[in-house]
Design a protein around this nucleic acid. Sequence first.
DNA 1: GGAATCCATAACCTGTTGGCTATGGATTAT
DNA 2: ATAATCCATAGCCAACAGGTTATGGATTCC
Lengths: 107, 107
Amino acid sequence: MPAAHDVLFRTLADPTRRAIFERLCRDGEQTVGGLTSQAGISQPAVSKHLGVLKQAGLVRDRHEGRQTHYSAQLGALAPLIDWTSRMAGFWQNRFDHLEDLLKRMDQ
Amino acid sequence: MPAAHDVLFRTLADPTRRAIFERLCRDGEQTVGGLTSQAGISQPAVSKHLGVLKQAGLVRDRHEGRQTHYSAQLGALAPLIDWTSRMAGFWQNRFDHLEDLLKRMDQ
DNA sequence: GGAATCCATAACCTGTTGGCTATGGATTAT
DNA sequence: ATAATCCATAGCCAACAGGTTATGGATTCC
């Protein structure tokens, strides 16, 4: 299984799909029809994107009669934040080691 | 021109490319040959990935004789952090509005 | 000078992906 | 009951992306 941040990066790489997720974050729960009306693509395309987003854990769906309501799951972004922090951490580590080296050279 | 975070997401979506960037973050400056030896793909493929990373501003190159040294530019991740914060902000906003609504209903 | 090394670019191939239309199941409206 | 609406799935296609080999320019080594 791929790492969690891998799935997130791949899922959010597509602009259309990211736009759908952004809309759910901004405006809250939406039906498929509501999302389709502003997405500029066909309803099946929107459904497919929603499927990918759901698979990544970025959205949740709730069935109500014949419509399906989707909402953003913001917590799913955590692995992305972790990854970024980890990269920054590596940076910091290398900086610390450099400082140590300089300090030892200074003696 | 696409937004900065768009380029970052697309660039970091590929696992191989992200692995190269991670290595540069972890181990600091590396030559193309050094990166190739651990990447599991051909040298031209590595060069192409480095080109994409450079275009995205994620790496910097420094020529020295016949070798090219690449290093991570961690600051380039800022738009990604901003985007994440913005999503969290939307979430918070909607929560605040809900609180307002409940407060008004309470009167 | 000639050979070898390092890297970038070009040309090509293949798998993946994001879009479409068509269709059908489930629900609601008439 | 029939028609209409909402959505998901299937099947198809064109574009793109990531890999390869081939090649050549620049530099260093002998």
